[in-house]
Design a binder for these strands. Structure first.
Lengths: 157, 157
DNA sequence: TTGTAGGTCTGCATATTTTGCAGATAATTG
DNA sequence: CAATTATCTGCAAAATATGCAGACCTACAA
C-alpha cells in the first residue's frame, strides 16, 4: 500500500503556514521558529512538496507586468456531453488562469488574464469557436480587494 | 522622483518565469540558466520582490489539507454606496480567498474555501448579516481543471 | 517482557549557496 | 567629453543545505 496523502500533524501545518507567508524561508529559519532540527524541517517540507500538499511559486502581480483586463467568463455548453472536451480545449489557452465546472446556470467558469480589452475580445472570439460552446457571458473584474491563501487556522478545530 | 515600477526588461521576465516554475530556485541556478552572475540575479530578483512585481508563496492544495467546499458567491449590494464598506467587511473573513468588484449583474464576487458544506452555509449566513448586502447567490465549484499563473509569454509582442 | 522492523529525529562534517563589498563597465546627463 | 549614476562582476566570508550514521521511539509478535 502507498500512502500518498498521509495525515498532516501540527508540525506539518506549522511548516505550511511559514511557507504561506514566505515561500523562500530557509530550512534553518523554519527549524528555528518551530524548534526542531534543520533535518526535520527539511524532511517534512520536502515530503509536503513531494506529495503535492504545497507548491511554491512566484506569484506575479498581473497589473504590474501588463495584464490590464482580468475577466470572468461563464461558459454554457450544449450538448452537455461535450463539457469535458470543452474544458480540455479551454485549459490549453495561456490566458486562462482558472477553469472549473460549476453547479450554477452555466457549466464552466473561466478566469482570464489579458493585456487589453482588445485582447480579451479576441480571446472570447477564439473560444467561441470551440465545438460545444453554446454561449458565453463575460464579466470584468474592476478591482481586486483580496487574493489570499486558504487560512489554515480554520482547520484547527 | 521615485520609480516604484520601473520597466521590466527581458532579464526580469526571464527571472519571473523561473520563479513561476519554482519559487525556491536558488540565485545560483537562476544565474546559470540565464548566463549572468549570481550577484545580478540576486539584485534583480530582490528588486522584483521589493517592488511587488512578484511574491513568492507556498500555495497549499485546498483539497489535500481539508477544504472540501470551494464556492463562488455573487453579492448584490443595496444601496450601491455601501459597496466599499461591504467589501471591507467581507475581506476580513478568513474563508475568503478572492474578492473583487465586477461589471456584472452583481456587485461583488467572493470566492470562498470552506471545510464542509455546513461551514459554507454558516459563512453565507454570516456575511448576509453585513449591512448593505441585499442578496447573495452561491455556486459550487465542482472540479478545478486549471489554476495557473499568468503566462508571461503573452507579453512578448 | 523481549526482540525486531520501520519510521522519524538529531547532530555533525562537507558541499553549496548567499551575502557584502570593491572595482570594472555601461549608460546618462550636462 | 567629462562627470555622475546605475548596473554588473568576481571574490572572500558567513550562512545554509545536504548526506549520512546513530539515537530514539512505536508497533507488533513471540
Amino acid at each position: 500500500m502507498e500512502k500518498n496523502t498521509s495525515t498532516l500533524d501540527d508540525l506539518d501545518f506549522a511548516i505550511l503556514s511559514c511557507l504561506q507567508k514566505d515561500g523562500r524561508m530557509s530550512f534553518t529559519e523554519i527549524a528555528e521558529q518551530l524548534n526542531v532540527s534543520v533535518g526535520t524541517a527539511r524532511t517534512r517540507l520536502n515530503r509536503l512538496i513531494e506529495e503535492g500538499v504545497i507548491h511554491i511559486v512566484g506569484r506575479v502581480d498581473p497589473d504590474k507586468v501588463g495584464f490590464r483586463a482580468y475577466a470572468h467568463v461563464a461558459v454554457y455548453v450544449r450538448p452537455a456531453t461535450l463539457k469535458e472536451h470543452v474544458a480540455e480545449e479551454i485549459a490549453k489557452m495561456p490566458e486562462v488562469s482558472f477553469l472549473a465546472s460549476t453547479s450554477g446556470d452555466y457549466d464552466l467558469e473561466v478566469d482570464v488574464m489579458c493585456q487589453t480589452n482588445n485582447h480579451l475580445v479576441e480571446f472570447i472570439n477564439e473560444i467561441s469557436r470551440i465545438e460545444g460552446i453554446y454561449q458565453t457571458k463575460t464579466t470584468l473584474y474592476f478591482k481586486v480587494y483580496k487574493y489570499a491563501q486558504p487560512d489554515l487556522n480554520l482547520l484547527k478545530n
